[in-house]
Design a protein around this nucleic acid. Structure first.
Lengths: 339, 339
DNA sequence: GGCTGAATTTACAACGTTATACAGCCCGTC
DNA sequence: GACGGGCTGTATAACGTTGTAAATTCAGCC
């Protein structure tokens, strides 16, 4: 059985509290006593039981991070950033994935999946505002990503509309006139809507028509979805000279189809993705992509959830993490600097 | 403040234990009592404090999974498999990443990173047998991956030598005669050694020379490492007709370089990877790859760590998960079935 | 040598839960 | 109508830790 404070106390011939004092570096302990107790601790191999400590203190030292899917490298990279940011505050991260399904997201937001946690960072996809309304308020929660909820939770996102506009502006600046958007979800995904809006606004500003026939829906946001949507556009007889994809996976899937049909990127069709995942930097054609500052997002998320720990009812805050456009071969052509 | 059993008991006018009995579906509770208590529970919004429950029961319901890096999609996909397998047993997963660094791995194996856990699944890269020798034995641990430790821990791996041989056999069967291996770590990585061994054995069996000049070292196992190694081989004036890479990321990095230099895959050089990550199925040229059964690995890992919970000192077991070769365009050429 | 006050150590009660053991109660039986 | 036994419900004591407050020790000083 495991060694407890009591065992150490008996072994050292002192009270339990004294051992606790040594373990916690309580100042009023004589050097002699400290050494004597420490010897017993070492000898017995005592290790504090964190569950008990947490029960006593009311904190667990764990925050949960719930992401739609780990298979998407964007989320994997984000998870790594959150884990590192949490470690810097002596917190560990319990990871969950929701598949982006509303039910799972509700379960997570209510704390039914991971319940021994001090805080929750949730990246919702389908979750609705009403799903959060009667959330029991004991565990602070921070929302991540593009959805905009009118609720008193901290929220960390990048400016999707601005980012999308920058991407489309880049394409227009390169002389492209027919820019498709791939990755809408039949208007039912808010982040996709924001990016479509950016696309629309930037085209309008350039005096170009925003042709709804060039907005392609997808079921998901993986490689296969991008490939299927790109194929549909081409089979409908459309031939845009540029594609702005919801994310990098969709973009890479689309490029795969273009390649298979003998269309050159970027000569025939330029492609811009979103997320700047590592994968995009190592395809046959490197991918131009909107690059959110993942470290900043992870850091902000951890810091804001930890700041709420005391249950302080501060005003909810909205953080905007930075983004930039990483320009690569899929828009600039072979030999482009690998930004 | 949070509602506790005591509050519910006071509200319902019964003892604490009775409320506990209702919560835990203890059979000897009358329907009337059950309903009365349940009403109080609902009214007050009671939710059990798992920390306390865990303290009492000695279990936390959490297992830790420590992987080298999440950025590698193989590990992200594996993590997803473990999370799902754990959820099937009502366990949640605390995720950590070690960067594949020995010190981090030691810390994790000793439980210094995540300490509120019932069990640990560790995928080591640099960890040495001696690092585990004086591990304090309270938390059961299962090792994942290719390293072979002579220690009493369950271990789950695929047969690396056999898998590597299958990959090389496939290349030889396609008529390739000069097969490079990319991704050794100067002989210091055991899993790489196993794959090199498979490469060597299969070449020997085919009566082909195993040319050490065609074994390329890398510092890591990411895209960039594969790209650098491939470039080095070509710059040394070598022109193999096939490449077997340590993993898919290395393979994709290598293909990127081949493409940039105008070499065609597979016509000029066929490429085989390892891990079968999704990314490999959506490049301009889809990647032939050794495909380990990740679901099986995740399932076996969770099941064996949970089986050890009682501290039963059963004989350590070694599980071999299945693998197969997913044959795609990087060896078969355009139009290959997308296995 | 006893007094004072600071420095050190300790006893005890929590934190919220469940296991154990026991106390009623109701029912049928002899 | 007392007795045994199966149902229900309860008091109490843990689980291992730390905060509080009280007890002890000790040095310095009159």
């Amino acid at each position: 059985m495991r060694v407890s404070l009591k065992d150490v106390a008996a072994h050292a011939g002192v009270s339990v509290k004294t051992v606790s004092n040594v373990v916690n570096d309580y100042p009023y302990v004589t050097a002699a006593m400290r050494e004597r107790v420490q010897r017993s601790i070492d000898e017995l191999g005592y290790r504090p039981n964190l569950t008990a400590r947490h029960l006593r203190k009311g904190r667990t030292g764990i925050i949960a991070l719930a992401l739609p899917e780990l298979g998407n490298p964007y989320f994997a990279e984000l998870a790594a950033a959150v884990i590192d940011a949490a470690a810097a505050h002596d917190y560990t991260v319990l990871l969950d994935h929701t598949g982006g399904r509303r039910e799972q997201e509700i379960l997570v937001s209510q704390g039914f999946r991971a319940r021994v946690i001090d805080g929750l960072i949730l990246s919702p996809i389908e979750l609705e505002t009403e799903d959060l309304r009667d959330r029991t308020g004991d565990v602070p929660m921070v929302l991540l990503g593009e959805r905009d909820y009118d609720l008193p939770y901290d929220h960390i996102a990048i400016d999707n509309v601005a980012a999308a506009r920058a991407a489309v502006r880049h394409l227009i600046g390169l002389g492209r006139r027919e820019v498709a958007f791939i990755g809408d979800r039949r208007g039912r995904s808010e982040p996709a809507q924001l990016r479509v809006r950016g696309w629309r606004e930037e085209l309008a500003e350039a005096g170009l028509p925003a042709d709804d026939g060039l907005v392609a829906d997808t079921d998901g946001w993986g490689h296969a979805d991008g490939a299927a949507a790109m194929a549909r556009i081409l089979e409908a007889g459309r031939r845009p000279d540029a594609v702005f994809a919801y994310n990098d996976l969709v973009a890479i899937g689309a490029m795969r189809v273009l390649h298979a049909r003998g269309l050159r990127v970027p000569e025939d069709i330029a492609v811009v993705g979103f997320d700047d995942v590592v994968e995009g930097r190592f395809g046959a054609v490197t991918l131009t992509s909107v690059s959110p500052d993942k470290e900043a997002i992870g850091r902000l998320a951890v810091e804001s959830v930890l700041a709420r720990l005391g249950g302080k009812p501060a005003e909810p805050r909205r953080f905007r993490a930075d983004h930039r456009l990483a320009e690569r071969e899929s828009t600039l052509g072979r030999g482009a600097a690998n930004a």
